[in-house]
Amino acid sequence: MRNKEIIKNNNEIKIILFLIVILLIIIGLFIRAQLVLKNSSLDEKIYQYHYAFISRSEDSYTANHIYEEAKNYGKRYGVYVEMLRGREDINYTISDYVKMAKAMKVDGVIMEASDDPVIKESINDAAADGIPIITLLKDCPESDRISFMELGDYNLGRRYGRIIIDITKTRSPKVMVLVDDTAVDDIELIMNGLKETLKNEGNHLDVDIVKQEVDGSLNFRLMNKVNDILANDENRPDIILCLNERDTQIVHQTISDYGLSGKAMIIGTGISEILLKAVKDDEFAALVDADSSQAGMMCIDAMMNYTKNGNIEDHIIVDETVVTKDNVERYLNEE
């Protein structure tokens, strides 16, 4: 009888203990949920370095992807990469952003530059304050930037050549290369690479390469030119090669506006959402741009190496990436 009483009492104590345990679990879960909710809303990652990222356009697909990659890659090494943006009502230039970065006393600047003297001056000012600058895709020659990360014109030409070999449907394709008169210096290396590849890897083809100079400053002139070329059945090229993003966008706009899709195979340079859709819709045969993942990682590695060891190469060559209908979905999904 005594034992029964003890067992009964033990059961009651067990029930109370059970309730207390549940209570403690609920309180524990509650505290945990509180902490998770608190922490999930903020990135509490700790950084030691602050690099500024400056792109020429906030809408640049490649620049944005390089920035995202650099930002994510930098997290691993305690580097916070910040894309500098201006107020919507003020149109800041690259030079303004460099000045801003200088005033912010960042630890480094990764930027899309140009040979604009104003940009050069701002780069030199920042460099004079001990801020290392790496130019990306577009260089500012003669400036005090520490390195230039580029696609590599010769390699780019080789890549164009391989694309032409892959997409051509005739043995004697006529390839028209749109040459922007504002960037003539880069062209020769690209052309050399292109020709070399066609000669070596496309020796079964008889490719006719025509350079078509276009006005780099006025968009409508290019549009008219492209329209003329594609509308003319007799001299129409089989393939049109655009060597920069601006030309590529204008060509796409012309095709869309004048209904010229399918008149020629277009190889573009640069990636954007519209262009990716154009590839998907067969308006474009291929797009070529820098490998943003590689570029993002390489610029962080290069900057870190310079910060820590003071070593960096003057030119860093980044691989290019090619978008065709076969892999366009992946890029569209990323977008």
């Binding site: 990135d43 509490e44 990652k45 910040e82 005033a103």
Partner: peptide
């Protein structure tokens, strides 16, 4: 300090901009 979160690092940038100004 030298080691900062994202928000702090940006605040530090603003601080530097402000002292410069």
């Amino acid at each position: 300090d030298t080691v900062m979160t994202e928000l702090q690092i940006r605040e530090q940038g603003l601080y530097n901009l402000s002292t410069n100004y």
